[in-house]
């Protein structure tokens, strides 16, 4: 390297100095992210201890007022539980279905391109627009799902499935699983591609059957990448606001609110910036805990290998 540089010219230009270039190349990104992520994050923490409202948005210290408002809010506790349940159920379903779909995406199919484009639809469509389509599929009288539910006597009386607590919650989970399964499939497919195909052939020659190959070879080898898929799914589901806002509007009777939509409801629509910020802060520790658990799982899987 140093020999190369000596040959490149006798002058040491500024544009040749690696230390300078590294700083010049990274600094804009660091400044930008500090100004618009790190600093606003500090501001959110500050707002959580404020009595600021949208009518009087300037900062006034309010101590624990925001947190007290949040803890006294029944909807907060329900949305906290809902957010956790939604995330856990979605992750399990997405990882299982995504692994199946990954094998299909890799298979040598005749209509491969068509299948892949259709399978990508849920992931690439703006989530709010998918939620519109889901609402149309589930909600109005005469929609396919409504008719099937009525036909199976699972829905009685008037009103749409989205007007009932249970079905509305199932719809939110279904929309999330539908949306994130393709993403998980792409990630798992990448993990499968990285495994040399000889491994499977060797296992087959050694007489391992389908299940033995699945749990003895495929699952352990793709565990790290599966963990990555699970983390992505959890992270996206946990902080998503669009599905609930558009599909159920948090209803019926706030039964499908999640933490992000609650923060919006209290902080923007309710005008209580302090309470909204306090509610949104609860996204952070749970989120970090999930990341740590996942990273540890990855490391353990690699240690075994």
């Amino acid at each position: 390297m140093s020999g190369t540089r000596a040959r490149a010219g006798d002058r040491t230009r500024l544009t040749d100095r690696e230390g300078f270039l590294a700083w010049a190349f990274l600094l804009p990104t660091i400044v930008y992210l500090t100004a618009l992520v790190v600093a606003p994050f500090g501001l959110t923490v500050a707002f959580a201890f404020s009595r600021s409202t949208s009518d009087a948005p300037s900062y006034r210290f309010g101590g624990l007022r925001g947190f007290r408002a949040v803890f006294g809010d029944d909807v907060f506790w329900r949305s906290l539980l809902d957010t956790l349940t939604l995330t856990c159920v979605s992750v399990v379903l997405v990882v299982v279905l995504g692994t199946v779909l990954a094998h299909v995406l890799r298979a040598d199919l005749r209509f491969r391109r068509t299948v892949r484009t259709l399978v990508l639809l849920p992931w690439t469509t703006p989530v709010a627009l998918s939620a519109i389509s889901w609402r149309w599929l589930l909600g109005p009288a005469g929609s396919p799902v409504e008719r099937v539910l009525r036909g199976a006597s699972l829905l009685h009386g008037g009103g749409s499935p989205l007007g009932r607590t249970g079905p509305a919650a199932v719809a939110v989970v279904a929309a999330h699983v539908w949306r994130l399964t393709p993403l998980a499939a792409v990630i798992v497919a990448a993990g499968l591609n990285a495994v040399p195909s000889g491994v499977w052939d060797a296992a087959r020659l050694d007489g391992a059957g389908f299940w033995r190959r699945l749990f003895g070879v495929t699952v352990p080898l793709t565990l790290p990448v599966t963990a990555v898929a699970a983390v992505f799914t959890a992270a996206i589901t946990f902080v998503d606001m669009a599905v609930v806002r558009v599909l159920t509007g948090g209803g019926p009777h706030d039964s499908t609110q999640v933490l992000p939509t609650l923060a919006y409801l209290r902080g923007v629509e309710g005008g209580d910036i302090g309470a909204g910020a306090a509610a949104s802060l609860f996204l952070l520790p749970l989120f970090l805990a999930g990341v740590v658990v996942a990273l540890r799982a990855v490391r353990r899987a690699e240690a075994i290998r």
Binding site: T29, I30, L33, L36, V37, V38, P40, F41, L43, T44, F47, P57, A235, F238, V239, M241, L259, P260, A263, Y264, G267, V268, I273, G276, A277, S280, L281, L283, L284, F287, L288, V291
Partner: peptide
């Protein structure tokens, strides 16, 4: 650090960023 920044989700930032 850049990866960690990515982990800070929009619902944590929208209230303060709307002030910004």
């Amino acid at each position: 650090a850049i990866l960690l920044v990515y982990l800070v989700p929009p619902p944590l930032l929208f209230l303060s960023l709307s002030r910004v």
